[in-house]
Amino acid sequence: MMTDAAKLSPMRTRRAPALASWDTAVGHALMIFVSLLCVFPIYWMIVTSLRPSNAIFSTNLWPDAASLDNYAYALQAVPMTRMLTNTFLVSLAVTLVQLLTGILAGYAFARWRFRGSAILFGAIALTWLVPLQVVMIPNYLLVARLGMIDTLGALILPHIASAFAIMLLAQSMRSFPTEVVEAARMDGATHWEILWQVIVPNLRGTIASLAILIFITTWNEYFWPLLLTRSTENSVVQIGLQMFISSEGTQWGPLMAASTMASLPILLIYLLLQRQVIASFMKSGLR
């Protein structure tokens, strides 16, 4: 149906859709360009991993003689499966423990008013601003004193609580309807029951997003494992990748094959939980 305004200004109504579709076309073209820019390095990594060593620097978009030799070499040169398992275990443990501490601390901050809670919350928030490089040496000394150098436990220990997880969960618990919590109190629920039976089931979205974020961050970690690991058996995959870069030169083919293998679990998470992953990055303010 035509509105009065539309009847009065036929010029505008005729031009508007054309303009709108032009805008859309430009917008889409831009987005496609940016997407290609983002996807290209991944594509190039995979293509390079399939090239023989003599054609490694070829600029063809498609590998001329694709082979899996680089993969076979990478798997044989470093204990790739072991490293992938280690990385998976460490990422999983960090994710679970960080979620647990985040949920408990988040509930305390969201639901309990205690003396100094604002200061404590602020202090926790501030730790988020402290870069790894600052705490690296104290943490290293601590781990060394605990005799945990070159263990998987040491990769987990400094990450059992994170300011980001606590803040995000406290925030979503604060916005959880107070009346529902009060209803649970009237129904006779303890704090523990309110947290696990009422709040947590309703924060599944946030928790899932956060879990993905923690998992990916831990999976990609390089510097702390680099400091701590001595043996390849206790190493993670990001360290494994580094082994293909040496003073004698970089083995680009195997490096790209190993990188592809290292990225696979993350790519798989993306494919399976695309929506959640995007939501989690939106929530964290990073994109």
């Binding site: 309807p177 009060e182 209803a183 009237m186 009422v198 309703n202």
Partner: peptide, 20 residues
């Protein structure tokens, strides 16, 4: 006394049902 120990039940304005 805790709310649960007072022998009363409450109906809230926004119903306050457990969504899950």
């Amino acid at each position: 006394y805790d709310p649960a120990d007072r022998g009363c039940a409450m109906v809230f304005q926004n119903y306050a049902l457990y969504p899950h």
